[in-house]
């Protein structure tokens, strides 16, 4: 199994940390993982993206031009990365702020209303975990339990009270897709 994933959107949407949480869960499940961010001024509100690879074999290039899954969170990213999804791959997008919908027919396109759900939930910090919940429902490459275990290991103790909220967000995200 190899999953080559790109998550891309605005800086500040939690793109990099969503990728990090996913990669860390893969690590806990004994998979080979790589996490390659765009870095620099992107962190300050431009577009940010991260390539995450999970595999049961050693990973060659951490940089890719074709992805099994693209999680796309703004229009610029959709314009840039729609053509880079492998035929038969999956494009997950948040329709908020999207004015030109994905057009490809040789891939699976999944809409996840993550922004809308986040606003309704009243917890703006849950956004990327809602997306992660949806992604893992579609592709259970790691289990939500492992994700929570990873959070327990990596979050400083003072933030552990946030873990139940994160678990709820993952569960909520899973309800947004079939």
């Amino acid at each position: 199994m190899t999953q080559e994933i790109i998550i891309t959107g605005f800086g500040g949407q939690g793109v990099l940390s969503m990728g990090k949480i996913l990669a860390y869960a893969g690590l806990l499940d004994g998979l080979e993982v790589s996490w390659m961010p765009s870095y620099g001024p992107e962190q300050r509100g431009g577009t940010a993206n991260v390539t995450v690879i999970l595999s049961d074999e050693p990973i060659s290039s951490p940089v890719l031009d074709q992805y099994d899954i693209a999680v796309i969170l703004n229009q610029q990213s959709l314009d840039k990365f729609e053509s880079h999804v492998k035929p038969g791959g999956t494009l997950i997008y948040d329709p908020y702020g999207i004015h030109r919908l994905p057009e490809r027919t040789d891939i699976k396109v999944v809409e996840v209303k993550a922004t809308e759900t986040t606003i309704a939930s009243g917890n703006l910090k849950a956004y990327n975990m809602i997306l992660l919940g949806a992604l893992l429902k579609l592709y259970p490459m790691v289990s939500p339990d492992t994700v929570i275990k990873g959070l327990e290991k990596t979050l400083p103790q003072r933030h552990h009270h946030l873990i139940p909220m994160n678990r709820a967000a993952i569960e909520q995200g899973a309800t947004l897709v079939d």
Binding site: L27, M36, P37
Partner: peptide, 10 residues
């Protein structure tokens, strides 16, 4: 280089 410096792996 910036890739090996910034990327995360096991």
């Amino acid at each position: 280089d910036g890739i090996v410096g910034q990327m995360m792996e096991k």
